[in-house]
Computed example of a mutant assay.
Amino acid sequence: MALLDQGEYICALPGDAAGSAWLEQDARDFTIIGGSSYRSGNSAGTYLMEGKQVTFTRGPMRGMKFMRLGSGILQEVGSDGKLGRLRCHRSGPVKN
C-alpha cells in the first residue's frame, strides 16, 4: 500500500490573469500525519491510496478523491471521474 508524504497540504483554485495566480482555499487544507491518517481542522480521518488515486475514506474529507500528479501534488477528481480545478500541494513538514 502506498502512502502520501507526511506534512501540511495547502489547497487552491486557479486564479485569472487579472488577479492572483492561485486562490487559496483554507477550509480545504489538510495534514498527512502518518500511516494513512490525516487531520483537517479539528478532526481526523483516513485515506486509501491505490496507484495514483487517493480516496479519503473516513473523517471530514470522506468521499473526496484526488489524483496524485507528482510528489506532494494532488488534483481533485470530480464525481464524474474528471480532474477538477482544486489542487493541493505539500507545503512543509507536520507542525506540532
Rank of each mutant, 00 (worst) to 15 (best):
M61Y: 10
E50H: 12
R39C: 01
Y38A: 00
Y47R: 02
T31Q: 06
G45V: 05
Y38K: 02
R58M: 09
F30R: 00
T57G: 00
G34Q: 07
E50F: 13
P60F: 09
S43Y: 08
R39H: 04
Y47D: 01
Y47E: 00
T57I: 02
F30E: 00
S43H: 12
R39V: 09
F30K: 00
G41L: 03
Y38Q: 02
R39A: 04
L48V: 14
P60N: 13
F30A: 00
E50Y: 14
G41N: 11
Y38H: 06
N42H: 11
F30W: 03
F30H: 03
T31P: 07
Y47H: 06
M49R: 14
M61S: 06
T46V: 11
I33C: 10
F30Y: 07
T31N: 09
L48M: 14
T46Y: 10
R58F: 04
R58I: 01
S36E: 13
S43E: 15
K52I: 09
R58V: 07
S40H: 09
P60R: 07
K52M: 11
S37I: 04
R39I: 00
G59I: 01
S36R: 15
Q53N: 14
S43N: 13
I33G: 13
E50K: 11
G35S: 05
V54Y: 01
G45H: 07
T55Q: 12
G34H: 05
R39P: 03
S36H: 14
G41H: 10
G45I: 03
M61I: 05
I33Q: 11
G51E: 12
R58C: 01
G59N: 06
Y47G: 02
S40F: 03
G35T: 03
M49V: 12
T46E: 14
E50I: 12
S36A: 12
K52A: 08
T31C: 07
G41V: 08
A44F: 08
M61F: 09
Q53Y: 08
R58G: 04
A44I: 08
A44N: 07
R58H: 09
F30S: 00
